[in-house]
Design a protein around this nucleic acid. Structure first.
Lengths: 187, 187, 187, 187
DNA sequence: AATGAATGAGGTTTCATTCAT
DNA sequence: TATGAATGAAACCTCATTCAT
């Protein structure tokens, strides 16, 4: 494999790069192998030593939360750049896509029995969704009875649909039909 | 060897008894400690040696499925003994209760990537529910658009609600409100 | 090495044998390599798997204490079978010999910050020595001012002499001269 | 690279300062956490990078010896400034105080299996003590039979008393009573 | 047929040491 | 020259599984 032969110790300058590589590898392996994937496998996939992984993320949970936080960053951007009543639908479908992308996303939730740090918790998601939801409700693009909290519950239900269908295509079908049963505007 | 006090070999007659004890212990420990509880803990709780557990259930999955199958047996009895249009509601609420009872129930589903044997799979649940659902629909106790398959999807959604709420009371609230969002008749 | 090829799994019957082998290996390796010797090395030297070591001794401390307890058993026998005023001297010299045999004996004491279980603690040693000491004092074989507790302090001082002299011969000389400085009857 | 805020390279002038800071930190941490404290913790406490620690002290042992040497420097000053027959007692009590201050002092001795460099070894202590001892013996403040080497043995015995008593107050009592058993003039 | 001790692979975690910046 | 991130060997410990009794 030409060009991939990374030198042994790339020095402190590689720190940010390493952190990012670990997040990518974790995202990938959590999705493919499940939350219980060996941390050493993540380190290997990221091309770093095990110690580096531990320096950046003291335990499995910290790593999982960091992966979450990464996703939140994108949602923030999306909310900021999408004006009008469509914003809610855009965010919702992005959220569903995250969940549908891998049922490991959900496994993390399952295994994460303790409370996540506030900046990746549900509170943040509620805040993010509140204003777009109101706009959508004004325009008839969302049920006026829904609260932001209800939207989280709807997302929780998507969790269930996805985790019960390990095969991605089946999961997509299940999510589509399931959301249809609740409200066609969610599909 | 004097004083060794071999702990009573109770002979072949104990086999069925042991199997039952293991299932009870597994049910209990899966619920309390999660799917990844050490098999040795289950054997200990059941009061049998680890070898016996292996004799009855070749691996963790087989044990998990057997626990499921146990639940199905009760649903069968319930379906057989509850006539009329109320039957669907009784079965549905029993199913929800199983799920709500412990999110370990769901963990088992989560961790169970491979297909379960037919006798504990969704097909069986679909068959079980089909006739009671039809009766309920005739009486207006269920949405006429729902297929038996849809009911499974609804149950999947309950999975999501439960697993996202580790505290039992929160989970109960979430399930109630979530089902309300879909159809008040499901609550 | 002919004749040493132990079979893979010798079964439960080997338990007592294994426990003894572990104690011997621990005694040996604590003495040669120090208290911090890897537990895996002890397991290897004992010819058992690491799990067996953990089954018998949940942690390093438990193992160290068990090694101590082994020594106490011999002292008990010695005290029981040696009548007369000589008994104190016999016990004392046995104790000194233990300590002189390896300064790892002392390292264990050093590292053992928490209280040992009563059956290997100093209380037991005090009880063991009290009566023989009294007999020796009556016969002029021990300083009448010494209490059993003082004898422990004297033993502590031997610790210091031994640990400060890693080479066994030097240690023996140091102990001899050191005890001479205190009381010739101790040599 | 904006915002990187390199933490001030203070240049060669800081070398001596760093060395001193490391010695202070090592003294402190050896005493509080034991000889096996991570070197990185010492570097952190000294406010230097790990590389600097390595520049000054190639390994743990070198650092330990340097800490010893520091103590010797104080003894030298004490010997030089205390004339008369009291000098021996002053030095002796200072030595005992060093030892009693922390049983980590002894742990270092225990772990230090190899020979220390001559300038911190026992030879130096012997030289230091010889002349004051002679003066004390002339004035009846020390047993005339003691050689300088014997005094080292007496100090070794104090090691033993201290290490066998992790609690500082107990250790002080043990040392007092132990020295009383040898010679009241040592207390 | 039941028991539970033994096995050992493989995960987690820590740190001494190196080295790019 | 100082920094501290990266490295990776090696320790710890836990079970799933086997198998002598």
């Amino acid at each position: 494999m030409p060009g991939t032969a990374t030198p042994r110790n790339r020095g402190p300058a590689a720190a940010a790069e390493n952190r990012a590589a670990i997040l990518v590898a974790a995202h990938e392996l959590f999705a493919r192998q499940g939350y219980q994937v060996p941390l050493s496998a993540i380190a290997r996939a990221a091309g770093v030593g095990q110690g580096v992984l531990y320096r950046h993320f003291p335990d499995r949970l910290a790593l999982a939360w960091a992966v979450f936080a990464d996703n939140f960053a994108e949602l923030d951007r999306l909310a900021a750049t999408t004006p009008g009543p469509e914003c809610f639908g855009v965010l919702w479908r992005r959220l569903v896509a995250y969940v549908a992308a891998s049922n490991a996303f959900i496994e993390v939730v399952v295994e994460t029995r303790s409370r996540p740090p506030a900046d990746v918790g549900e509170e943040r998601l509620e805040l993010l969704i509140a204003e777009p939801l109101a706009r959508a409700q004004e325009s008839g693009l969302a049920d006026p009875a829904w609260t932001p909290r209800d939207v989280l519950l709807l997302l929780n239900m998507v969790y269930g649909l996805v985790l019960a269908h390990p095969e991605p295509e089946e999961a997509a079908d299940a999510v589509r039909r399931g959301l249809e049963l609740i409200d066609p505007r969610l599909v």
